[in-house]
Design a protein around this nucleic acid. Structure first.
Lengths: 339, 339
DNA sequence: TTGAAAGCGATACCAT
DNA sequence: ATGGTATCGCTTTCAA
């Protein structure tokens, strides 16, 4: 069957008016006499007419849509960011196109998306700098999320380096761990690269020896569980593990439970993000809270500002993080009981 | 700044040819003399030209894109489904538009998406039947995922009722539980409605009294944890809980661990979906495995078939599930140790 | 208040 | 092999 949603012309015929009048009814109803308008509106609802976006886009030379490129679509972190992004977009009456690259760079799809939207938010590591520059050169409004600015392309992020420096310092100073294992693969992830560097720097500042390498794993529950289970079974299993995010740490909780290893007595554990589960497990997960919804909202606003033509655009917005000390690092747990 | 990605005209001027020739180079390069072609190709890459989708869409009267509407974007279930869906779409050279409705019906956004794509897959409960009928009447290719067919709109799903009937029967017969609590809110979710009905029917078939109501909660880890923590603290806490999906069950594991309740000795637990974590926790989670990737792929294929105009379209595809008995129901756990 | 017509970007038919 | 031009759906300017 051929797609045949009604067009302006069909509605115009149905209502016995010109296509110009139909268009006016949908865009500037005040310009149309009320009886004519009623007739047209009836035709519109009878036929279920909606102006085709490509017709409008062609005239307006904009798509009334913005896009966001994510490495994955799984997990609470992305979910909150998308929510913040969408809320801003909807308030501005724009549609949102989401592209999940599944943790592989996919420049072709990003360029394709670029022909369907008025602006694109790129999450750290999902598009090459070359692609970003190509789009920027064409005047495509862009905003980077969770990565450093590229040339004149603005970025929104948190200071992952400082946050991880502080968190590591807490483990090193307050709890006296000698050296702390880092779980998570910084490859292609500016966020994780900064976190790893923060951990290394905190060691160096105290003349401690940081681990030679991060343990490069995908940052989700299954990988956290499997890897920590393996570590706990090895001869010199670590006393303290810094996980690159909360979900990896949650996997570590399961591994510890299975191995009969107590947190924090036998193993100190920390996460990053402060997802809803982090405060509910027991002991509570010591982590760094990021304003995820705000990150998404802010990057959308920066896109909108560019589309509107506002100037200047803030080139590098850094939102604040909070170190959240709960029980998993060895501190006494706060009153965040699961209820 | 005004968006100004290069158009056919700019490229044509740059290369000193007509716009028709530029179009030929991108669509039927064999029709263009090699030296002209080279000149045009150089102009294209210098200007970073990509044919605008709305121009093409206008002529072709199709968008070269298909859409998928999801209740949420969080969690392994949706992730796998999307992966399967995207793989098919990419193979057919179509872009994918994803719409997350965040567990509220959002007909307006679905109708908006309809003006940007050639076909839409709707996941159970994300669009009203009225909207589905409206789109179907206009000839929009549609496919339903995880819900029953609506009129002539085809559906792809698993037999949730039968799967839950079998799972509940196992708990009732093999492990002898009297009555089993169901965790999850069936409202607006055809999938969960079928699961709840399956649990009730399995009770009735044995003249047992099913619970009067499901415990209506969102089916994620935090809700699972909080709710089970509350149940375990109550006076007659349940001996067996059927969770509407695995993530809810994973939250229940954390609640049990915190309360010192042993699984399965003190509390039997089951899930649904068989996400990666289900086989890794200890004891392994007894659950029902769904072919999630295949569900996504199949629904995409049905969309593609409609777009191509194939006939007939299978009206109701039901994919097989597998009952996965692990340790959390009380059976002896298999050899799925976390390694 | 309404209609006729130009034009947005790309394609494909018809000429040349 | 290449160019001119009508066309897709819609909006908007200009006339009436």
């Amino acid at each position: 069957m051929v797609r045949s949603s009604p067009t302006v012309r069909k509605v115009a015929d149905h209502a016995g008016v010109s296509i110009a009048t139909v268009s006016r009814v949908t865009r500037r109803p005040d310009l149309v006499a009320s009886d004519t308008r009623e007739r047209v509106e009836r035709a519109i609802s009878e036929l279920g007419y909606r102006p085709s976006h490509f017709g409008q886009a062609l005239v307006d030379r904009r798509h009334s849509a913005i896009g966001v490129v994510f490495p994955g679509l799984s997990g609470p972190y992305y979910y909150d960011v998308i929510q913040g992004f969408e809320a801003e977009a909807i308030a501005a009456r724009l549609s949102v196109l989401i592209l999940g690259t599944h943790h592989v760079r996919n420049d072709e799809q990003v360029l394709d998306m670029a022909t369907r939207v008025d602006g694109i938010a790129v999450l750290g590591g999902t598009a090459s700098e070359e692609t970003i520059r190509t789009l920027a050169r064409q005047g495509m409004p862009l905003a980077l999320l969770a990565q450093h600015p590229v040339d004149d392309v603005p970025a929104v992020r948190v200071d992952n380096y400082a946050a991880m420096y502080d968190l590591t310092s807490h483990l090193l100073d307050t709890h006296g761990y000698e050296s702390i294992v880092f779980l998570g693969d910084p490859t292609n992830s500016p966020d994780l690269t900064d976190r790893w560097n923060g951990l290394v720097a905190a060691h160096r500042a105290r003349r401690r020896t940081p681990p030679a390498e991060p343990i490069k794993i995908g940052i989700d529950q299954p990988n956290g569980l499997k890897t920590v289970a393996r570590l706990l079974a090895s001869t010199n299993s670590p006393r303290a593990i810094v996980c690159a995010n909360d979900e990896t740490a949650l996997g570590a909780y399961a591994a510890a439970a299975a191995a009969g290893v107590r947190i924090p007595e036998d193993l100190a554990l920390t996460g990053f993000d402060d997802i809803p589960m982090a405060g509910l497990v027991s002991p509570g997960l010591t982590t760094v809270s990021q304003p995820m919804r705000e990150l998404g909202a802010c990057v959308a606003q920066i896109l909108l500002a560019q589309i509107r033509g506002d100037r200047p655009i803030p080139p590098d917005v850094i939102l604040a993080t909070t170190l959240l000390i709960r029980g998993s690092c060895g501190c006494r747990d706060g009153p965040n009981s699961p209820t």
